[in-house]
Computed example of a mutant assay.
Amino acid sequence: MQDKTRDLIKLYRWGDKMKTFLAFLMALFIALTFMGEKTEAKFISETKIMMDTTVSITVDGSYQDIQKAFSAIEKINFLMNDYIPSTEISVLNRKGTNKLSCDTRQVILKAIHFSKITRGAFDITVGPLVRLWQRMGREKRLPTSNELNRALSLVGYKNIKISGDTVKLLKKGMMLDLGGIAKGYAVDKAIEVLRERGVKNALVNAGGDMYCLGEGPSGKWRVGIQHPRNLRKIVGIISVANRGVATSGDYYRYHVINGKRFGHIINPATGWTVQDIPMSVTIIAPNATTADALATGVFVLGPVKGLELINSLPKVEGVIISKGMKIVTSSGWGKYEIKRFY
């Protein structure tokens, strides 16, 4: 077991810090998944860099199944990645209106739904704020009040108008950022393809946004919950089947300005990044899209309101980790957790 883990870590070790970190998570995840007695099922895996992250697909099937699943993810990337100028979302952001595919419209409609149930804590119109904080990271300074207020004036999911296959942004300068939901949706589309091809057991993991279909080699899929301040440790292990799992945290993407860490998750109401409370949120939900969006929304809501929201939703569970390793869990989290280290 130890040799296998070391080999996996070596296999996925890139020079870039981001890739090294994601590689470790992937290696740890696979190591946890393959713990225990072996079954008769023969699993195969493949990993690619897609959607600005590491995407790994493990199936009790064929390499053709895996390639079809990757193709489904790539399709979503080329529809919704706002850093590729030709995508539907990029055109919408530039022109303020665009005719969109069914997939892109569906993601926007789902995003609006999650904006409503989180009371605006999840909002895909944060694009201007995301770009502002990216610039602040490069310039190593905090935004001025005027810069922040200007970006905030362009945020608000109620200013998205959908008419048939056409979506319009009602304020000039608005920008959609699907970073908090598109990966989860892409994972679900990959799982959809695998199911159509008759695959019963699979795991699709897009940088921590994942869906666990059926069972793994040792029964239910085992997922390690990342320690938010020690990236070589995990907080606990959960066991899941036929569920989406997603984590949002401040420990990977952040800017250091004036010696202080500013995470990448932004509060749409204030324009400021969320700091330390919480440090990470992991959600278990019926699908990866829901888990992805709620992980971000709950992160912005914080431990108290976030936990209230999780407990109010059917078939949704979560764990919230805050500064000082203060851990709170939803009422049904215990039925998934099989080990806690903190």
Rank of each mutant, 00 (worst) to 15 (best):
V245Q: 06
S248C: 09
S248V: 03
S248K: 07
G249S: 15
G249R: 08
G249E: 04
Y251Q: 12
Y252D: 05
Y254N: 12
Y254M: 01
V256D: 10
I257F: 12
N258R: 02
N258M: 15
G259W: 08
G259F: 08
F262I: 10
G263I: 07
H264V: 10
H264P: 11
I266D: 11
P268C: 01
A269H: 15
G271T: 14
T273G: 15
V274S: 05
Q275V: 14
Q275H: 15
Q275A: 04
Q275N: 06
D276Y: 11
D276G: 01
D276N: 12
I277C: 04
M279S: 12
S280I: 08
V281F: 12
V281M: 12
V281T: 03
I283P: 03
I284H: 02
I284C: 00
N287W: 04
N287R: 01
T289E: 05
T289Q: 03
T290V: 04
A291M: 10
A291K: 11
A291I: 06
D292V: 01
A293F: 01
T296K: 01
T296R: 09
G297W: 00
F299N: 00
F299R: 02
F299I: 04
F299V: 02
V300K: 07
G302C: 13
G302L: 11
P303H: 10
V304W: 03
G306S: 08
L307K: 14
E308H: 09
L309S: 07
I310L: 14
N311F: 05
K315P: 04
V316T: 04
G318V: 04
V319Q: 12
V319I: 15
V319K: 00
I320H: 05
I320S: 01
I320F: 08
I321K: 11
I321T: 03
S322I: 12
M325H: 04
K326P: 09
I327L: 09
I327Q: 00
I327M: 13
